[in-house]
Amino acid sequence: MDISTIIQILFNSLRTGSIVALAGLGIVLIYRTSKATNFAQGSIGTINAFVAGYIAHATGLSIWTSTLIALGTAFLTGVIIDKLFIRPAGRTASPVNKQILTLGIILILTGIMNMNIGILGDLFTPRYPEQFISSSERVMILGRNIQWNTIFIVALSIFLLSAIFLFIQKTRWGLAIRVTASNETAARLMGVPTKTVTMIAWAVAAMLGTIAGIALAPRAPAGLNPGLLIGTQVSAFFAAVFGGFQSFFGPVFAAYIIGFLLSAGRYGMSSYFGQPSIIADLIIYLVILIILYFKPFGIFGKAPERKV
């Protein structure tokens, strides 16, 4: 194995890890603020990635502009879902019921993506959107051609993730998020607008999922399709559990670890053993499950207190 292969694997894993981290941070944000495991994260991202792909295809706008428009629709999607479905469930709904609500949202979004009425049929046609930077723009790094697009996606993700961390740690609204995450009732009594915080968490999560979808779609095997983010979502959930749902940083760190393990494992499995790359996924996730068996709250998490 020469240095250029290592570079290739490294950049692949950074790309995968970035996409997983974006989706995973959205899941953790929602889990911390509204106590719901959001299984619809992938579907929300996919449906808005479709919007970006369609706008770029139909109006000839660049993928940058269409992404900005899709981020707007993603914001709306998040707000609508929170207003219509999550808030009416209220604080009294059990975590399982909220989980089931997000599963119902998956079905609704899948149904919308399958619809074929008027513009919708055209909107949700599988297609390959353009990359942010054309794949012909490459740079030579230690004997390997790396696409500028890959570097851009990694840089964008790291920028977004750091911006969100700074926002959470340094600003008043970030404090509101942290307070809501730690104890919603107390936060509300202290005058924190928890409803707005929850709504913004959903909107931001939807936007993060959308960026993940748009970044993934050009090189996904089937392009934009309703199942685009399923694999990413599985990794994102594992990252969230592995890093610990109780911290914001842990899941992001775990996402890059999982991204690296997956890229290296898949490469090794297909080039050294000649087996389908899914076997590598299977082994890696099984190992993570076994680690979680001994550290049930993740590598950075701590056990939550239980009150009767």
Binding site: F85, P88, A89, A93, N97, I100, L101, L103, G104, I105, I106, L107, I108, L109, T110, G111, I112, M113, N114, M115, N116
Partner: peptide, 18 residues
């Protein structure tokens, strides 16, 4: 009416839970 069956099922889940 493709897709309407999923929307129907999803809405029923949410309405039942709520």
């Amino acid at each position: 009416l493709r897709g309407f069956d999923d929307i129907f099922t999803g809405l029923l889940i949410i309405l039942t839970i709520l």
